[in-house]
Design a protein around this nucleic acid. Structure first.
Lengths: 90, 90
DNA sequence: GCAACCAGTATACTTTTAGTAACCACGCTA
DNA sequence: TAGCGTGGTTACTAAAAGTATACTGGTTGC
């Protein structure tokens, strides 16, 4: 729970599952999350090795975030959790 | 995360896996958790249907908490999470 | 030159969660 | 009858998590 808990980490991983996504795109996907939150969570996920940060070009500054193989193993478990919540009546 | 998150719920379910446990016994098992914390989490788990509360009013007031079948399905997933954290280097 | 977009940073604030300490009513035992 | 253990409750504080808003410095397109 310390590693994957909180309001946003699972959502971030979920939104990265189909490939790299840019910072602002991700912010929009997450709707209610402030940039600060997205930024903080991404930094944590990067330190944890679940996500990688890549600067695509300096000129029009572009950064993408991509889920790692290790991050996908986390996502597998999060999907099981999701299935469980959907089977029950929460 | 809203359902199973927080610092104590997973530990409580874990300690109930081998059968009913009394309130104070559970408090001691959880070490650093105050009675208030244990009480609050148990109430939530009861509302969620993961745990049942039974008053065994033998005259010396005794209450036990027991994990439900549904609670065990949650425990299965929490064990997967635990395995995952142990495979990685957290 | 201006607006809008990019990837952030800074600061202040509110809300939620965790935790402490003291208390109650009851029963048992020395 | 004093002190312990049982299952709580109440009032409070501290810390973590999240929100809001403004800001920087650069780029793109008109």
């Amino acid at each position: 729970m310390r590693i994957l808990g909180g309001k946003w980490k699972a959502s971030i991983l979920w939104h990265l599952k189909d490939g790299p996504v840019r910072f602002n795109e991700l912010s929009r996907m997450l709707g209610g999350a402030s940039k600060k939150m997205v930024d903080q969570r991404l930094k944590e996920l990067e330190v944890q090795g679940l996500v990688t940060r890549e600067v695509i070009c300096d000129r029009p500054i572009a950064v993408t975030y991509e889920i790692t193989e290790f991050g996908r193993t986390a996502l597998d478990i999060l999907e099981k959790l999701k299935d469980w919540t959907e089977e029950s009546d929460f």
